[in-house]
């Protein structure tokens, strides 16, 4: 078992828990609300849900770094490993497989999805990316770690696949420090 995996397991045993069904139903309530407000324009809904995830991501990365005691990651591969094996385990209790495609892209594969515990998409909602929240969370969290990423669901059981796959592509690695506007003359 890799370090990231065992660390994830330990953290999962330690963190306070809440019922996953309440979690799933609460997310369902939120999605319903967004769908209603967006007049069923599914592209808008996806965008909004992703933004909601983003705002979770930029905050939950702090909690993760504070609690997880994860080693410093030198490469994207290590970051991906910690993200999938430790962070997903700690927050959601699920087991995620991390697949590296190239130095700048990787996939997260998993079976259990706490967000879509009771979900089946109606025929005319197939364009809805129900669990796109994860993409926003990952984008937000990695942005705080200086990675600008593109993140999307490639596979989802809600659309007939047998597993979930989230693909993450790194677009840009930002440099540390204040932006150019703030540099001293």
């Amino acid at each position: 078992m890799s370090k990231a995996t065992s660390n994830g397991q330990q953290l999962w045993n330690k963190v306070p828990k809440a019922n996953a069904e309440l979690f799933a139903l609460t997310y369902g309530a939120l999605v319903t609300e967004v769908v209603r407000d967006a007049d069923e324009n599914l592209a808008t809904v996806n965008e909004k849900l992703e933004k909601i995830g983003y705002s979770i991501g930029i905050r939950c990365v702090d909690e993760f770094l504070a609690k997880s005691n994860s080693p410093y990651c030198k490469t994207l591969a290590e970051t991906a490993e910690v993200l999938g094996k430790t962070a997903f385990r700690m927050f959601l209790g699920i087991v995620v497989d991390v697949v590296q495609h190239s130095p700048s892209s990787f996939s997260l594969n998993f079976q259990d999805n706490p967000l879509s515990l009771f979900v089946e998409l109606p025929e005319n909602y197939k364009e809805l990316e129900y669990s796109i929240l994860y993409c926003g969370v990952i984008r937000g969290a990695l942005e705080m770690l200086n990675y600008k990423v593109d993140c999307q669901f490639v596979k989802s059981p809600l659309k007939g696949d047998d597993t979930h796959e989230i693909k993450v592509d790194v677009k840009q690695v930002m440099s540390d420090g204040a932006g150019e506007d703030y540099q001293e003359e």
Partner: peptide, 15 residues
């Protein structure tokens, strides 16, 4: 079937 309480808290705060 559990998730971490903070996950729920983040989600609820967004709601």
């Amino acid at each position: 079937t559990m998730v971490s309480m903070s996950s729920f808290a983040y989600l609820y705060s967004e709601l």
